[in-house]
């Protein structure tokens, strides 16, 4: 038996917002439950009502469109669907690799992309690859709808800018220029499934030659760095520049998974591997 709560299956976003608002802080949106039920079991959270959003069809959409078109992902899309979607993987390999690195096969059949975002863990694997392609979130609540850049969504460790009664209704990736290369790397303690000691996503656009990098698990919220110019620079110079920017941007702490020193020590190798790969043509469709 898990805690003491009621369960409601919502049939529309309006219904979710209404139930969440009525429940004040005691009602929580419930998707895969792979984080939330563990928290409830461990006494970390004790909601009075779980509002299941998985039955709401628009929240389960995954529209990749044609190359050069935006990508729309519903928050209730299961991570395995993202990991296994060939067109999505072709356009944005980093997101597929990141989804595949989260938890185990069984958990990815339940865990959702929206849940991974809204859990707002500093070590979230889905956030860095979405940051480097400038993803935005559609949010709906009692006061209406709004768009929030993903970079502004997480406001602290496990905290988001969601107001009471609000939920994420769509994750939107603006058009990814054909030829863009993206990659994701993750340092774990073991080869099996594990949370990230550090993770890193990158996107290199052929249009403007800008390299966008995002680092996870080294700051209270995943860190999107300022774009780095690559046009006219040798790969080695870009790698060194990226290493400097990453080192200057992070403020890792020591926790159960690794010491701050280890995180600082391991990142340059990941940055080198990822950036050199992108510069040398890896990470394409």
């Amino acid at each position: 038996m898990l805690g003491d709560f009621e369960y409601a299956r919502a049939h529309s976003v309006d219904e979710v917002c209404k139930l969440l608002q009525e429940g004040k802080g005691d009602a929580l949106a419930y998707a895969g439950g792979t984080d939330l039920l563990v928290d409830i079991r461990n006494g970390v959270r004790s909601p009075k009502l779980l509002v299941d959003i998985k039955g709401i069809e628009p929240l389960r959409g995954l529209d990749v469109g044609d190359p050069g078109e935006p990508i729309a992902i519903g928050p209730a899309v299961f991570l395995n669907r993202i990991a296994e979607h060939a067109d999505l993987r072709g356009r944005h390999p980093a997101l597929g690799d990141a989804a595949l690195s989260i938890a185990t096969y069984q958990l990815r059949n339940r865990a959702t992309i929206g849940g991974n975002l809204c859990n707002a863990s500093p070590a979230s694997d889905s956030i860095p690859p979405l940051l480097v392609v400038s993803a935005t979130l559609s949010i709906q609540g009692p006061a209406g709808s709004r768009e929030v850049p993903l970079d502004c969504f997480c406001t602290g460790v496990k905290k988001t800018c969601l107001e009471p009664g609000e939920i994420v209704t769509e994750i939107r990736i603006p058009p990814i220029a054909p030829g863009t290369r993206t990659a994701f790397l993750k340092q774990q303690r073991i080869r099996g499934h594990d949370l990230a000691v550090v993770n890193l996503a990158g996107a290199l656009s052929p249009d403007d030659g800008l390299l966008r990098l995002a680092v996870g698990s080294c700051t209270p919220t995943p860190l999107l760095l300022e774009p780095i110019e690559t046009a006219g620079h040798a790969a080695e110079a870009v790698v060194e520049e990226a290493e400097r920017w990453v080192a200057a941007g992070i403020s890792p702490i020591s926790d159960v998974r690794a010491s701050a020193e280890y995180r600082r020590a391991v990142l340059p190798g990941l940055v080198r591997q990822l950036v050199a790969g992108l510069m040398n043509g890896k990470g394409g469709a």
Binding site: R9, G33, L37, V38, R41, N42, K54, Q106, R110
Partner: peptide, 27 residues
């Protein structure tokens, strides 16, 4: 484990392996 880590409770839900300890019966 009861927290989705060990897989001993794996069943197929509509054909897909899931950890039944982290699914509510109501669902």
């Amino acid at each position: 484990c009861g927290i989705g880590e060990c897989g001993a409770c794996t069943v197929l839900l509509d054909g897909a392996p899931v950890t039944s300890c982290l699914i509510l019966a109501a669902e």
